[in-house]
Design a protein around this nucleic acid. Structure first.
Lengths: 333, 333
DNA sequence: TTGTAAGCGTTATCAT
DNA sequence: ATGATAACGCTTACAA
């Protein structure tokens, strides 16, 4: 592959001049500029981003750490980030992490070795201290979907306690008193927070939520199916199901229908996330809108701006609250 | 950030020695090795991937060009690639392209500037010649979901003509004679090929497919809805719908049900791709399985192996054929 | 086993 | 307006 040197030789000018042409620098004669440009295209010259990054210490790249591309939630996340990197002419370096300490750590470190300018990290497994330390090292470090008070100004996150409260309140308002919850079995904050919110709402209404009415499984459609099976097997009596996410809600609906339990006339179901699935399931799923895409875009902008020297304000954080999207899966009793 | 020089100074050894312990090179005394390692972790040293790539001319990274992360098809694609890069300890550089010449070109060029070792490219808009030229320049260049005879050994693709034939034959075998097709409005090979296959099957059965029975729209759920609306508005009489993909099939089912047309008792629907959507729609969608994930993994392996010097065999290509997945959306008449 | 030094492709600082 | 030249952080012969 042709280097800047080859171009310089071919054009009979110095390296410096070619470099100036490449970077649209000033102080270059029009004639030379044209001649050099011509030779560059002729020889198929492509500047070496690595060499450039080495000397300028800037890489025009943003690192992304997420758990699993297949999950529509993360796909949406990635899409939100991509929309801003495209605008800024920045390259995405992607590292998948899978919600385990070791892999999340590895993902972040690889990105750091590549000297990405900014990074948007979705980490659930790593401890606060580790993340705080990374933030100290990398100016453009931003967390999405997680809140750590010490670095709140680098956190773009959703208030899951409020989310849990909102979904429960909606069910209560529709007259549902016999509720079941199907949640994620993973030991991360999100399911805990959402259930906390649910309990808050129920408590205010003087309603109890026994542990037996909560089922845990993998946060996907299959998990939703299993939870319903277990609930049914245990003979739990419920008219409303609060799901951890839309995938579980969808699985739950499938299983309920398989048992000839109609939705929403016999059982109401509410989801969380509002991914595409929700809109196109049958019946259409009432759910909480998690503005991932907007949040991801925000996180990317933030990371880029911090990376380029903007100082994070103290005492600020980027908290979002989910809103309810009423569709067809919840019936007013 | 600490450099190799800093480590060398702190450890009282030369650059070369530090480099050797970084790369687990031989010929380093155990004592020195331990000492240097200790100092590296203590100082939080991280080798600079750019500098390394510059001198070794290898970057341990694989570039991916795709159109749209939001689309579950591409998410699956990305996931398949990710599974092999993870295994090979290779980083993913992602560039979104959006099926336009200019953006696809830009995406590939950026990746090339970053000197990725290998690349898996999903390009629909660029001309054959351009792609062939890229393949000539970059040893690890592999195309997915596209076939170009001249570089067939760098193509991992699906036989869409066969796919069209298979879906039509299935409908015919189930006794459907009045068929409608809803297809993608984009001017790329895939929809054309699939319709070609469909026509082949119908022709063999002596059945005609008038242009009026084909509707084109965007290849998503909304597009599927619109196509059905148009078909219904035109008063086309059909008992079977062949959809361009599962998303359109899903939209079609939604719209049919909205018109109180039951599936499959009144109209049968068949999709294409077999994304998650198909399994969880109601009724469950009969569709063609497009083994994207497997193909993407294959493409990534191929790209990596070509990149590391393996010579592509002549007269070989990586063609896959979709298989039918029978679920509930097609009724035997 | 360890060190010296050249060079990878650029940019940037001085000169000219 | 153009050219030398010293970095940037690292690997890798070649010496010692």
């Amino acid at each position: 592959m042709a280097t800047i040197k080859d171009i310089a030789n071919a054009a009979g000018v110095s390296l410096a001049t070619v470099s100036r042409v490449i970077n649209n620098g000033p102080k270059v004669g029009d004639a030379t500029r044209e001649r050099v440009k011509a030779i560059m295209t002729e020889m198929g010259y492509r500047p070496n981003a690595n060499a450039r990054a080495l000397v300028t210490k800037r890489s025009a790249s943003l690192g992304v750490v997420l758990a699993e591309l297949l999950d529509p939630f993360f796909a949406t996340l990635a899409h939100g980030i991509e929309s801003v990197t495209r605008k800024h002419n920045v390259q995405i370096l992607m590292s998948a992490g899978s919600i385990e300490k070791a892999t999340e750590l590895k993902a972040i470190e690889t990105l750091l070795e590549h000297r990405v300018e900014a990074m948007v990290v979705h980490s659930k497994a790593l401890d606060d201290e580790v993340l705080i330390e990374f933030a100290r090292q990398a100016p453009g470090f931003v967390l999405i979907n997680r809140f750590i008070p010490e670095i709140g100004n680098r956190c773009v996150w959703l208030d899951n306690v409020a989310g849990g409260r909102i979904m429960a309140e909606h069910m209560l308002k529709q007259g549902h008193k016999k509720l079941a919850v199907i949640s994620s079995r993973y030991q991360i904050d999100d399911p805990v927070d959402r259930i906390t919110g649910i309990r808050q709402a129920l408590q205010s209404a003087g309603i109890d939520l026994p542990e037996s009415h909560i089922e845990y499984s993998t946060p996907d459609q299959e998990g939703g199916e299993k939870c319903i099976q277990n609930l049914l097997a245990k003979g739990v009596d419920f008219t409303g199901v609060l799901a951890y996410n839309d995938a579980m809600a969808s699985g739950a609906m499938t299983m309920l229908l398989d048992h000839h339990i109609d939705i929403p006339s016999q059982v109401s179901v509410i989801g969380y996330d509002d991914v595409l699935l929700a809109k196109y399931s049958r019946p259409k799923l009432t759910t909480l809108r998690y503005p991932v895409e907007m949040m991801a875009a925000k996180a990317a902008e933030l990371a880029l701006s911090y990376a380029s020297g903007k100082k994070p304000e103290a005492d600020i954080t980027f908290k979002y609250t989910p809103t309810i999207v009423k569709r067809e899966s919840v019936l007013r009793l």
